[in-house]
């Protein structure tokens, strides 16, 4: 049924996004795939309409990750639509001190482990996540190592050397 496919994957036109999504967009970056910044509080609504609107159908969450830009944190969602074949990068900018963003586990169950990983390593709280606890590090660990200002406590290093 899908014997003939175009060699170039289809591109999503950001300008054609429905009203409900475009009004929540902070800014758009032209890149491949297109990148949109979304208001954190509106994230779940945007994601739901991205998944459910006919013609968009972003049913597959490739990846959830994050980056620390010292003045702010970014959560990055890479989306892909299996039936349509187009992709989208969705970003949320967060305050460093009170980093919190609604969880998208209700929309894509695959976000479960990945949001836990972001919480564990970057210290971003996902409100509404069913089981938000550390996943790669042990529960007693203090701090979030992927933050740029993270440093191992001094005594830890000396005990490792000794």
């Amino acid at each position: 049924m899908t014997a003939i496919r175009s060699l170039v994957s289809p591109r999503l036109d950001v300008k054609s996004l429905p009203q409900a999504i475009s009004e929540s967009i902070v800014r758009v970056v032209e890149s491949d795939p297109p990148m949109i910044y979304v208001i954190p509080d509106r994230l779940v609504e945007v994601c739901r309409s991205l998944k459910e609107t006919v013609g968009l159908e972003f049913d597959y969450l490739i990846d959830v990750t994050s980056a620390d830009y010292l003045d702010q944190l970014e959560v990055v969602y890479h989306l892909h639509s299996v039936p349509r074949g187009h992709a989208l990068t969705l970003k949320v900018e967060l305050d460093r001190e009170e980093a919190s963003v609604p969880s998208v586990t209700g929309i894509w169950r695959g976000a479960d482990f990945q949001e836990r990983e972001v919480y564990d390593l970057m210290g971003i709280t996902f409100t509404g996540h069913p089981n938000l606890k550390r996943i790669l590090l042990y529960d007693e660990f203090v701090g979030h190592p992927l933050r740029k200002d993270f440093a191992l406590p001094k005594e830890d290093i000396s005990s490792q050397i000794g």
Binding site: D59, Y60, L61, I62, V82, W108, R109, G110, A111, Q114
Partner: peptide, 8 residues
């Protein structure tokens, strides 16, 4: 559906 939803 399950597989795609779980990002498998």
């Amino acid at each position: 559906e399950m597989a795609i939803n779980y990002s498998i």
